[in-house]
């Protein structure tokens, strides 16, 4: 099932050019999937136990930026990493996963579906030979590859002691950009990005911010973005419920009473809005409006 593994060395043209510049680049990389494209790369990493907000943001940023032409790099870990790969793949773009184990091992196994999608339409990279187990000390070294290949790293949620913070620190050491997405102040997984922002990381509130910071807004753009996807057909009641929603998760009971309709009706409408990606579901029957919805509401 697994296609043949290739080995690329530092002198190969396929070897990511930025990775050559770091202090201890891997001598060779094992690669499966599509060839590594010579496109500007951006790492999107974050918490393994994210909130629904974080997942949504990661998927949204990955999708938009991949469509704009960036190659999204991440670690195929649970949570934000997986969401970043999926966002990019869903946008019809490629994505690069850097593993801390042999390429024949899918770790974590829960992300098997991402692994398979990457084999087909993405690239999976590791400096470890086949059969290498995912040992804890492999991950910080793996993070140096993620940071080293990329122009910058976007941190979406993470705890101060988490692996995403290691990637951020390495990016800084390699003099790459560090971007952080802010989150609710009471959420423990917002603490990591907030610390980074305090220490000078760029605060990022939209995918466009990243293109501007990277100085790519001239070359790359969201040309296809605005018109087709952004005008979903909404029934009057759907618009009413959407108007009653906020970017923060709100309890179904409260949304229903704000919209002045029974909770059962609100629940049905929310299900439809969720399928249109305008609403995200959170723990405990709470719902929030997605970034896409705020654009709709603004219009």
């Amino acid at each position: 099932m697994t296609p043949a593994e290739r080995r690329i060395t530092r002198i190969d043209p396929e070897y990511p050019p930025l990775l050559r510049e770091i202090a201890d680049p891997p001598v060779a990389l094992n690669v499966i999937g599509l060839p590594l494209e010579p496109r500007p790369m951006l790492a999107i990493v974050g918490a393994r136990k994210p909130t629904a907000y974080g997942l949504e943001v990661a998927e949204w940023f990955a999708g938009e930026l991949a469509r704009a032409g960036l190659l999204i790099v991440s670690g195929m870990a649970r949570g934000i990493d997986g969401a970043a790969h999926q966002g990019a793949l869903d946008a019809g773009a490629s994505s690069v996963a850097v593993l801390g184990c042999g390429l024949d091992i899918c770790y974590p196994r829960a992300n098997h579906h991402i692994y398979r999608r990457l084999l087909e339409s993405g690239t999976i990279v590791s400096e470890y030979p086949s059969g290498t187990a995912p040992l804890p000390h492999h991950f910080p070294t793996r993070n140096r590859i993620i940071a080293g290949m990329s122009l910058g790293a976007l941190i979406v949620e993470g705890r101060p002691e988490g692996g995403a913070m290691i990637t951020a620190r390495l990016s800084m050491e390699f003099s790459r950009e560090v971007f952080a997405v802010p989150g609710p102040v009471h959420s423990p997984v917002s603490l990591g990005p907030h610390l980074l922002i305090r220490d000078g990381a760029r605060i990022i509130t939209s995918p466009l911010d990243i293109l501007e910071e990277l100085g790519l807004s001239g070359q790359l753009s969201f040309e296809s973005d605005d018109s087709p996807a952004a005008a979903p057909d909404l029934s009057p009641e759907e618009s009413m419920v959407l108007a009653a929603m906020q970017a923060q998760p709100v309890l179904l009971d409260i949304i229903a009473s704000a919209a002045g309709i029974p909770a059962s009706t609100a629940s049905a409408i929310l299900a439809r809005l969720e399928l249109k990606d305008l609403v995200a579901r959170h723990a405990g029957s709470r719902f929030s409006a997605t970034a896409q919805a705020t654009q709709v509401n603004r219009r």
Binding site: K49, T51, P184, H186, P188, A283, G284
Partner: peptide, 18 residues
């Protein structure tokens, strides 16, 4: 939601090993 009961609560951190 998880053995420690905190997963999914936005104000708390789930302490369960994955």
């Amino acid at each position: 939601p998880c053995p420690c009961g905190k997963a999914g609560d936005e104000r708390e951190v789930c302490s369960c090993p994955l």
